[in-house]
Computed example of a mutant assay.
Amino acid sequence: MPRVKRGTKRSDRRKKILKRASGYFLTKSKLYQAAQEAVERGLKFAYTGRKQKKRQFRSLWIVRIGAAAKLNGLSYSQFISGLKKAGIELDRKVLADIAVNDAAGFTALAQQAKDANAAAKQVA
């Protein structure tokens, strides 16, 4: 029975890791073991970073909406509550975009939110 040769599997695997580590500092981009540790660590940070990005963007949108709502005499929570009562289902990403790029449109939404809040107070 002939002996089993590795072929290119080992070098391919090492090359893949070293290619991912290109641009890393000193031995992290040159030596396989150091590169492997650095790449695994980087992938871990990339994974958590993708989750954090979603949180950070949501809080950015909330800040933008809150600032625009303040200009229209409402707090953020009053504005969101009024929109829900008015039956307007726009997500925060869209609301933030409207707040930044279309002040008149946001003012109209804020007025609807105010009206819905006032109507809810009269009922209660």
Rank of each mutant, 00 (worst) to 15 (best):
L109N: 12
D115Y: 03
A99P: 01
L43A: 15
K44S: 04
V4C: 13
A67V: 12
D12H: 13
I80T: 07
K121V: 00
R64D: 06
F25R: 14
K30A: 05
K5H: 12
A86E: 11
T8R: 06
R6Y: 11
A118D: 08
K93L: 04
W61D: 07
G23F: 07
N101I: 10
Y47F: 06
R6H: 13
G66D: 04
A110I: 03
R20A: 15
K16N: 06
A34P: 02
S11E: 05
V39P: 00
I80L: 15
K5R: 09
Y32V: 04
T48E: 09
R20N: 11
I65S: 00
A35R: 01
Y47R: 10
R6C: 10
F79T: 07
G42Q: 01
S81T: 06
K70G: 04
K54N: 08
Y32I: 11
V4E: 15
S11L: 11
K121M: 00
R92V: 13
I88G: 12
A116Y: 05
E89P: 12
A35Q: 03
K19F: 10
K121T: 00
A21F: 02
Q122F: 01
P2G: 13
N117V: 10
S75H: 03
Q111R: 05
T8K: 12
E40A: 11
A120Y: 01
R3M: 15
K93A: 07
Q56P: 05
T8W: 09
G42A: 02
A21E: 10
I98R: 00
G73A: 00
G23A: 04
K84Q: 08
G105T: 01
I17K: 12
Y47W: 14
G66W: 02
Y47N: 05
A119I: 03
R58F: 15
N117P: 02
K53C: 08
K9A: 11
L109R: 14
Y32W: 11
V4P: 12
R14S: 12
R55G: 08
L95Q: 02
N101A: 09
V94Y: 06
A38Y: 00
K85H: 07
Q111C: 14
K28M: 09
A118I: 09
S59T: 07
W61C: 01
F25M: 05
R92T: 11
M1C: 09
D115R: 08
A118M: 08
Q78I: 03
I65E: 00
D97V: 04
F57V: 15
A46K: 07
